[in-house]
Amino acid sequence: MNHLSTRHLTGIRDLQEQDIHLILKTASEFKEVINRPIRKVPSLRDLTIANLFFENSTRTRLSFELAEKRLSADVVNFSAATSSVKKGETLVDTVNNILAMKVDLVVMRHPHPGAPHYLKSQVNTQIVNAGDGTHEHPTQALLDAYSMQERLGDLQGKRIAIVGDIRHSRVAISNILCLQKLGASVRVCGPKTLIPKHIASLGVEVSHDLDATLAWCDVANMLRIQLERQGGEEMVPYFPSLREYQARFGLTSERLNRLDRAITIMHPGPINRGVEISSDVADSEHAIILDQVENGVAVRMAVIYLLAGVR
């Protein structure tokens, strides 16, 4: 198949296995493009894309914006902090106002789960979800899958551990769905308070033992402890202290040295150095954290190219 089966990317749930393979294959061609002397192609030169960020983001917004600019699209940015949302405008009104200015595609991040899904039934445009609350973050899952494939080849039968704050993580859910569609086995690992009860119904294994999980997996994807979703550093309610978290679930070189083989280390960023991952591990040759960032631009170029080209 050489085109996507969907007009929107609100979540990995929208995608079939072939769609994911097409996106990853297209991304590898865009990775070649962004490593050329001239890192830009003219494909989207008559399209305008709006990046609507109803929640703060630095790297995802930058990554989308670079991807769009390298495809030669015109880009407008919107962030909720400086907008009429504060004046009480509804989501549908905000988006319809922007669409009235002839925007072809909308990339959105929103604090409420399901916001892009709701929006696609209300407005006439194509939507790419850049993260909706604790629900999905499909482009992050795709770039993670791309980065894993780059290291390990086909992911069929590979064992991937997702470690840390699963409860607040849209990266975790999108990753689980995406990796399962690609045939990998997934295990989540973290303190009981940070693992939602129903998570096993997605068909993943659950563990509370980091050392056993590291011994099992080919890749460990270390999620960030989301201090801002837990009431700040002073009143973290899900575990007794950051120090205790670090002692039980922090990835350190001592832990990795106890394994009989090297595993690949990932992190979606931003890193809390010394909490979920120690500095020497984050900077080691087995960590592909900066590859993930580079691949993020290529994968987002692929998603936008494949969606925006649909008539």
Binding site: N2, H3, L4, L22, K25, T26, S28, E29, F30, E32, V33, V41, P42, S43, L44, D46, L47, L71, Y305, L306, A308, G309, V310, R311
Partner: peptide, 22 residues
């Protein structure tokens, strides 16, 4: 050399063309 991203018919077909390797 793959020319897919430089074609002049993007958005004028039902679906975009999948690229080949450069």
């Amino acid at each position: 050399l793959d020319v897919t991203f430089h074609r002049d018919d993007f958005g004028r077909r039902n679906h975009p063309i999948a690229p080949n390797a450069t």
